[in-house]
Design a protein around this nucleic acid. Sequence first.
DNA 1: ACCGCTTTTCGATGCTTGTCGAACATCGCA
DNA 2: TGCGATGTTCGACAAGCATCGAAAAGCGGT
Lengths: 113, 113
Amino acid sequence: MPRSTRRRPAPTHPAAEDIDLYDVLHALSDPTRMTIVRVLRAEPERACGSFPVDVAPSTLSHHFKVLRESGVISQREEANRRFSALRTVDLERRFPGLLDTVLAALARNGGDA
Amino acid sequence: MPRSTRRRPAPTHPAAEDIDLYDVLHALSDPTRMTIVRVLRAEPERACGSFPVDVAPSTLSHHFKVLRESGVISQREEANRRFSALRTVDLERRFPGLLDTVLAALARNGGDA
DNA sequence: ACCGCTTTTCGATGCTTGTCGAACATCGCA
DNA sequence: TGCGATGTTCGACAAGCATCGAAAAGCGGT
């Protein structure tokens, strides 16, 4: 009996057309999560633990879950690490210009605040 | 002794340059408040009680307070009515394109949902 | 087989939030 | 002066949220 290669439950992502605006806005209304998005904007992919945020690992995991379930980021597993990436294409298709505008606004708000 | 003509405490608004992005995003992440913004987009001004939202007056007052203190709307008093308006100029100056993009995204999200 | 690293899950905690009803304030009008 | 209409304030309440520490799961290397 071939055991599944899946170890932990694979991270679930909403379909592009199911991304909800209110979920996205809520996800982006937290500074810690916005920092994650901003960093991910500059790099295509990054491991969870390598973000310049000052919260406990469990808290960070929670924020990634919020971002993932709102459709802002995607996550893939590699070994015991989990890499995150912005869903730029899906977001652009669903809500054109939103991500760019918000990130531009963030830069005016205080940049890294 | 001349009493002040102010009866109730006048509504307080943040200065344009003090509008905080996180406050704005949070204000916009609620459907009831978003409905208010959407209606205000089509009309320059409107009295509080005349919005097509289905909540108690006290709840509505709370939402207006959130919108006002985040800098999304302004309110002026006339007699015993309070008129609200979008702070389109201030918002555009502080976060260019944000309001338009979010409202366009709202239309894609389900329009009046 | 064991250890260390990365990340998630669980339970708890304190704060925030959306909601309501009741009471209050203010105005116009009769 | 009193009445109705318009909004706000005040508690109260349930739900949600950001946060943490402790524990567990999964992987790679020794």
